[in-house]
Amino acid sequence: MTAEALAAAVRVVLVDDQELVRTGLRLVVDSQHDMTVVGEAGNGAAALQLLSGVHADVVVMDVRMPVMDGIEATAHLTGGVLNGSTPKVLVLTTFEEEEEAFAALRAGASGFLLKNGTPEDLLSAVRVIASGDAIVAPRITKRLLDRFAPQFTASAVPDRRLSDLTSREHEVVLLIARGLSNLEIGDRLGVAEATVKSHVRRILTKLALRDRVQIVVLAYESGLVRPHR
């Protein structure tokens, strides 16, 4: 990879307590011309130490690890405590770890990917998260929230930031929370996909949120959307 290509590439850090898993992930990521692995760590604490000196765009994070798990590490990373740097987090999980994946989303992860996915799934997810254009597997994320949202919707508290949204932006938030993509939202509202993207950018700015996953979580936590509603 040339110096110019390296400068433009998505910088990825891999965090997993199994070295063999990290090796496989590195081979997949480094095979691409538009992304590169800039570091690895075997637990969340080691990842925080690494990222205090290494800039990354996306952190591929396992959930269950010794010393510090992926949930706690995600909360630290998305809190912007590392020299003002806020890498985006892609959580690796299994069906058996859905509860941990949900906790990671609430901690600020930009999405999650099932470990039994394909290399193409991983590469697509890294690109999507790096671009900030959409969440990973929106309907899977919606299913996850529907399963665990009852844990906090019973005590939901309306968020005053939502009152700053226009009626159209409010509609877009509801459709995002229900798992629709930008294209599907555009079809539903009768507008171009580019128009939906503009709405999403304004919503993120008004609500002071980082990405679409945070919009979904806020919609549930505020009671705007309830499971199976």
Rank of each mutant, 00 (worst) to 15 (best):
V13S: 08
I71G: 10
V173Y: 13
A107W: 04
L183G: 03
A101G: 02
S198A: 14
V126P: 02
D121Y: 13
L183A: 12
K88F: 02
L175P: 03
V213M: 03
V21I: 13
V157A: 11
E221H: 13
L25Q: 08
G179Q: 09
L25W: 01
N83C: 07
V91Y: 03
R210G: 06
Q214M: 14
V173F: 10
K206M: 07
P119N: 15
R212C: 11
L25V: 02
V81Y: 05
N83D: 12
M65N: 03
A9M: 05
E100I: 04
I203F: 04
A8S: 11
D187G: 09
I203M: 09
A208M: 12
L224R: 14
V21M: 04
Q214G: 14
Y220W: 15
V200L: 10
E221L: 12
G132M: 13
R147A: 07
D164W: 05
T74P: 09
S110T: 05
D57G: 07
R161Q: 13
R201W: 03
M61K: 10
V54A: 03
R106F: 00
N182P: 12
T166V: 05
L209S: 15
R178C: 06
L207C: 15
L145E: 01
R178L: 01
M35L: 10
A8H: 13
I215E: 10
L77G: 05
R226I: 04
D34P: 00
N83P: 06
S222W: 11
S131P: 03
R26S: 07
D146N: 14
S110D: 07
S181V: 13
S155Q: 08
A103C: 09
F148I: 09
E97V: 00
L90W: 06
I185P: 09
A104R: 14
A9Y: 05
E169S: 11
L204M: 09
G70I: 01
E169M: 12
R11I: 04
V38N: 01
Q151D: 12
R161G: 15
R212S: 08
R178W: 04
R143F: 04
A56R: 01
N43K: 00
A208V: 05
R188W: 04
K88P: 00
S124M: 05
Q214P: 07
V213N: 08
D17G: 01
H33E: 10
H170V: 06
R127Y: 06
E171R: 10
V67N: 00
E221K: 15
I176L: 15
A192C: 12
A45R: 14
H33R: 12
T195K: 08
A7E: 07
D211W: 05
S124D: 15
G79Q: 12
G108H: 08
T74N: 12
R212I: 03
H199T: 01
F152N: 03
T78F: 05
L92C: 00
A109N: 10
F102K: 05
R178H: 10
P150V: 06
G186S: 13
L20G: 06
R188K: 15
V81S: 10
V59I: 13
R188A: 15
D16A: 01
E120Y: 00
D159Q: 12
F148R: 06
Q32V: 08
L25M: 15
T36Y: 02
E97M: 01
F152M: 11
E193A: 07
S163W: 06
V38A: 02
D69T: 07
Y220E: 14
T74D: 11
E40V: 04
P227N: 10
S167R: 14
P138Y: 11
V60M: 01
T153N: 08
L82Y: 04
